[in-house]
Simulated scan of single mutants.
Amino acid sequence: MANKNRSSPSSATPKLMEVSGFSLMNEDLLRNILSRLPAISFASAATVSKTWNAACCHILSRPKLSSAISLKPLPLVALQEVFDKVMSEPIRPHFAIASVGPGFEIKDVLQFMVEKVRSRTPIIVSSVKGILGRDALSHEFREVKWIDGNIDEVPVNTGIVLTVGFVPGLKVDVIPLLRQRKAPQGSMIDKFVQDIKSYTSSMSGCTSPQAIIMIGDGSVDQKPILEKLDYAMSMETIIVGDERGQFVYRSSDVSRNVGTNKKHSPDAVALVFARDRNKARGIGNIEFHFALSKGVSAIGPRLKAASVRVQDSYTVTWLTARREGQQEILDGQQMLEDIDNEMENNMDCVDLYIGVTRRRNCSVGSDKPKMMTTLALHGVEG
């Protein structure tokens, strides 16, 4: 009996190790299989059991962007092609952005996306002047630009880039600036900023989001909107976008959608990324970074405006100015000559802009006004 008792543990141990090893192998195999599924099948697999759901959550535990471009001449074919590509791997869409060429009806693209992705996924579709991305079929990087309806590089105008994002630890939604026809723009801008702050506060407990992607209506001056956002948001909030676009959108909050607000028209729309204060344990923090191109370089002396005269409905400004520390007043021609001399007579080879710095009081709603500094670039003509 003593020998039998001593031998029992040694005979049972290999079996225990064998079972444990088999379980681990099964888990690895399961993850390997699930990681190869397209997004829709992956979503279904996550509902099979707790084990499968845990495996799916392990696969999608880090941020993921899936993007593709198509230049197919038929809009529906191009749209289906990029959608199939971005959804060919596991992803849970937290947002979707489609940038399309002039050959697309943006409302049709939005309707297609609404039917294909989850009902609460925020979506923005915008018509743009150019696109850049990796081809859905060849996987090569492609770029195309459209200028006044003309096509550069490819003989089609139906290019599309679709980007779908998964951002664990963040809450994302579309918030529009809906302007009533007779309401002053200032009050609508204040409401837009307050809507962003309220949404962010409800999701994260603070009033400044991590990032904002904003698209503005090309027929509406976006500078006052950007100035208010710059004033109201913290320095850590990244704000990027397109101020001269055409767009349609779908928010997860039905009350924000234009279809339920027929008396309003959207002047701008913001895709807001806010921290999720109820994020699952183990989920890290996503940080946004941006880089500025060197397309605009400072040149010439710093000037102080002496007189400013605006004409032609604010599209043309006549300006005279003084150099810092000097009393002589320079007109536009003298300023251009100074710049041309500094550039060694190569001014005709570049586009010139005047950077105008302004300091003024700014406030949102009933907040106490505070002084802020803004910089705007104005193109030089003549």
Rank of each mutant, 00 (worst) to 15 (best):
V109H: 07
G130K: 04
W146V: 05
K191I: 02
D152C: 03
R120L: 11
V114W: 00
V128G: 00
D84W: 10
D148E: 14
R118Y: 12
D173K: 05
V77G: 04
V167Y: 15
I124H: 05
G130Y: 05
N150T: 11
P176G: 09
T121F: 04
S88V: 04
T163D: 10
R179A: 10
A78W: 08
V100E: 05
I175H: 01
R120K: 14
L132P: 00
E89A: 03
R142N: 11
I131L: 13
R179Y: 00
G149S: 03
E81R: 12
T163F: 02
T163G: 03
F192G: 01
F141M: 14
V164Q: 05
S198V: 12
Q185A: 09
V174Y: 01
I123D: 05
V86A: 06
L132M: 09
A96T: 13
P176R: 07
T158C: 15
D195H: 09
R118N: 13
V174I: 08
Q80Y: 01
K191F: 01
A78L: 05
R134I: 15
L79G: 03
F141L: 15
E105Y: 01
D148M: 08
V144Q: 15
V154G: 00
V125K: 01
F166Y: 14
Y199N: 02
S119I: 12
E81A: 14
V77H: 12
D148I: 04
R134Q: 12
K145H: 13
E115S: 13
D108Q: 14
V128F: 05
V164M: 14
L132N: 13
N157P: 06
E105S: 06
V109Y: 08
Q80V: 03
R120G: 07
W146I: 08
V128S: 04
E140C: 13
A96K: 08
R142I: 14
V82W: 02
V164N: 05
G149T: 03
F104I: 02
D190N: 04
I151R: 15
I124F: 05
P90M: 10
A78N: 11
S198Q: 13
D173F: 09
V156L: 06
R181F: 02
I189K: 12
N157Y: 09
L79P: 05
E140N: 07
V174E: 03
R181I: 05
L76T: 09
G165Q: 06
E89Q: 06
F95N: 07
G186L: 10
A98D: 09
L110I: 01
H139R: 09
V144C: 07
V164S: 04
I147P: 03
R142Q: 15
L76S: 11
L178P: 00
R120F: 10
V161M: 08
V174F: 01
M87K: 05
G101R: 07
L79N: 00
E143G: 12
K191N: 06
R179C: 07
L162W: 00
L177P: 01
V77Q: 14
L177K: 06
G186N: 15
K145N: 14
F112T: 01
D135K: 04
L76D: 07
F104T: 03
S88M: 08
L177R: 08
T200Y: 04
R181W: 02
K107W: 06
D195M: 08
T163C: 12
F166S: 07
F83S: 06
D152Q: 10
P93Q: 02
V154E: 13
K129M: 09
K85Q: 14
F83Y: 15
K197L: 07
I160G: 04
